[in-house]
Amino acid sequence: MSEQAILEVRDLKMYFDVSKPLVTRLMNRLPKHVLKAVDGLTFSIKRGETFSLVGESGCGKSTVARTIAGLNAATSGEILIDGKNLTGQKEKSSLSDIARRMQMVFQSPYASLDPRWRVRDIIAEPIRAYGLADNKEDEREQVAQLLLQVGLSPRDGEKYPHEFSGGQRQRISIARALSSKPEFLICDEPTSALDVSVQAQILNLMTRLQDDLGLTYLFISHDLAVIDHVSDWIGVMYLGRICEITPKSELFRRPRHPYTRMLLETIPDLKGGTERKPMEGEVPNPINPPSGCAFHPRCAFATEKCTRERPVLKGYDMAKVACHAVEDMRI
């Protein structure tokens, strides 16, 4: 399995120091505060598949995306692309080769494009950075192709980002990501800032590109319906950890972790009109997470063991679940 995996993440941890400034801390005798945004994540993605991370805000899913992309330096753990370790990589040339094969699409269609650059320059930036064009003519040709590929016209390259709608900007963002000829795309909530009718266009575009180019996606979203539409595998995150990893079909047919069950119950039902059960409570402060299983204060199946002991991921058929209740066959 690991030969096919394009991305492998092993025990990834990303801690942020969110303490008050040193002087204030010493004067008020405050302890050091560490935000464990990502606390021991292990998963892998097979070439050509879409792996999604889903969870509520503050669960650390975006931090995972940014850490894998190399925008944060991981506190510990390993990130392997095609078996090559990204975290320990010191040599610049090989790092740059790995970086070229991995690109990212961001959430905000507004903040992700430099407002002072023409669209053709925005899209050409990665081409220039990696020297992928033989000459100016070649570069122009590549940019024109990319614009066509994402459903825009080559003439749009002359314009500035503000002349486009949110959906079109997201297309530009995708074109930029594709310009370094990546194999692996990290998509951090790429449609959550868009209107639904436009969201469908962008999701379809991404599906088509995956087919045409054989792309692998790491997809981050809070929207379960979108996740269900795009994913092959799904990881459910809660407070910096994965509580369940399953194939898509399993997750929606047979959710195992109590948190997953709760999430599924809160999805608004368009057609049936059944009332959804409001979930109790809210996500706790990640700086001060509950002991043991972080979900236990909201969990109907929690026992004394759950408050004490942190459950680990264990396999059940295709799925892996981190839950004492599942382990003890109470649910």
Binding site: V196, Q199, A200, A225, F252
Partner: peptide, 21 residues
Amino acid sequence: LMDSIPQIGQNLKYLPNIEGA
């Protein structure tokens, strides 16, 4: 608009969508 909203268990490869903006 209604067609373009993804639904759980729908299992469509492509979502029906309205072209343009």
